[in-house]
Design a protein around this nucleic acid. Sequence first.
DNA 1: CTGAAAGCGCTAACAG
DNA 2: CTGTTAGCGCTTTCAG
Lengths: 347, 347
Amino acid sequence: MTTIEDVAKKAGVSKSSVSRVLNHNYKHMSDEMKDKILKAIEELNYRPNSVAQSLKKKETKVIGLIVADMSPFWADVIKGIQEECVKKGYSLMVSDSSMSAKQEEENIKMLIGRQVDGLIINTIQPQSELFAYLQSIKFPVVFINSSPSNIQEDMVIVDNTTGTMEAMNHLLSLGHDRIAIMLYPIENILVRGERLEAYKEALETNRVPVDKQLINIIKQEKGHGVKTTLRLLESPDPPTAFLSTNINLTLEVIKAVREKGLEVPKDVSVIGFDDFEWTGLLDPPLTTVATPVLEMGAKSSELLFKKIKRKKHTKPVKFEVIPELMIRKSTCKAKIEDTSMPQIIGK
Amino acid sequence: MTTIEDVAKKAGVSKSSVSRVLNHNYKHMSDEMKDKILKAIEELNYRPNSVAQSLKKKETKVIGLIVADMSPFWADVIKGIQEECVKKGYSLMVSDSSMSAKQEEENIKMLIGRQVDGLIINTIQPQSELFAYLQSIKFPVVFINSSPSNIQEDMVIVDNTTGTMEAMNHLLSLGHDRIAIMLYPIENILVRGERLEAYKEALETNRVPVDKQLINIIKQEKGHGVKTTLRLLESPDPPTAFLSTNINLTLEVIKAVREKGLEVPKDVSVIGFDDFEWTGLLDPPLTTVATPVLEMGAKSSELLFKKIKRKKHTKPVKFEVIPELMIRKSTCKAKIEDTSMPQIIGK
DNA sequence: CTGAAAGCGCTAACAG
DNA sequence: CTGTTAGCGCTTTCAG
């Protein structure tokens, strides 16, 4: 391991001078000396030991990301965070709580012990003392895709209301008035609540009665989506459209529709949530409410860096990323069964 | 920030003693003292500063992962690595080279500067001086899903030969003898080569002539898969089955088959590569060669930890993860057009 | 069994 | 403009 001392010796100068060029404090340094040092660094292929730098400077230039459950969704978020990180000279530590609150707390403590400069947290916990503690010591944190209820903190979340509204308006404008909404129970309660509320609101705004039969909270286990869809389709007054809030659920809905001998979108329209590279390649290409995942990542790190910079306490900002309705081929006009078209009032 | 000094004071002992309990060097310590210290730690909610520990111990308990391009595929690999990491008290730094060799080298240097104890690299480069350098300084590295040609190093890769063979044998045993193989050009050349060779070998073993028309290297751009498939289907002697080596490509193949008015699997059988939570939910549920992604991650960190432990140079191990053929519904018996069934000889 | 002291590699006053 | 010096928070001989 070559150290700053080696470089100093080789260049015949003091460590301080080497340190100065390392930190771009050239201002008052003779060009001759600068060149000498640069050359020595070059020749020795020297890279400063960040650990020593961190210890001295009391900053690591590392941020931590804690996700509740590592899944394909996070790959793009990480990419977004990463891109901001390289711009600012930061590195990223990633950890996964595997859906365990205990593990999440352990991850937070560990990362703090590692002296990360800030944390991006996707929490599974509705609240936690630890969050309050972090806030009390002014530790830079931004929450992503989740928001604890016991504190006010920076966060970047998806504007589910707008996303859901757009999807609903699209469906309503197509003449659908029996729209089923499909939800998994475990997603952060907030998220689910928002989507459900927006669903109801869209209906009410358009004077379509809310039918409780059409609101489905489905156990997050393979097969339950199919089962529920089938049941709905077999009911006396079946839905003509589905708003499905999770990609796996969406695939199950489509599967069930087919099993029933019906076609998407001819007989039943389907809108899903979340967009991947391949959703447009499905059959039919899926109309979805697409979360701009990269942007979420980029924005959260941006917020975090800002917070790290001005250590002062500033009032929490809530950044809402707006989902985009990707209209493809899984939705179409409702078959006219009755003549009264609901009146559409856009948001 | 509470330090070891604070704990020492509170407990009325020396820093050394505190350090001893921190490092579980109780052996010859009076229980009384131990308890006193433990209590002080507890009360102060003290966590040692890993940066200082690292500087002193000359190890960080951090490993780095460098991926060529962050994508959903990596989410599960990361999960696998992570799980091993928590077991061993390690943390993970993740970086993305965005398909740039320059960025990759920068990432390596940066992580080394950060004193990570080892590196898991998914390289885009067929070779690099840096790799040789790392080897020369005995820096612990394992390559994942890629293997540079200029050095011999630990690596964990997918046994594409076995995977491809199994897929081919499945198809051949179903009576298919016009099997098209679809490949993207840019995947690591090794990977592509292996799959292609295995394809040919399976054919030859079963005395089925290799038809160059059926070997398709497709530009990695949306739409090219559809185009190529259509062309094949319209040829005078079209394939009855497709072996598609990438999930997006596979979706395009299926799409094209449908556009042509044909059905999967009735008219055309399709086997894809890579398996996600949702591949079984597609229509039809996809038969795929599934890479055990979690295992890849777990295994690579396992190898890395071993290497970190015994610093000695040991001869490189190449761990091949065996893909599993997930037989679902996108393949079925070929329509009998000629009576001569190819003879199947399993691997 | 416990404490004092040296030092990991670097930065940042402070002198000169 | 450049060098000397004193730590950052921790571990680890080495004495006692």
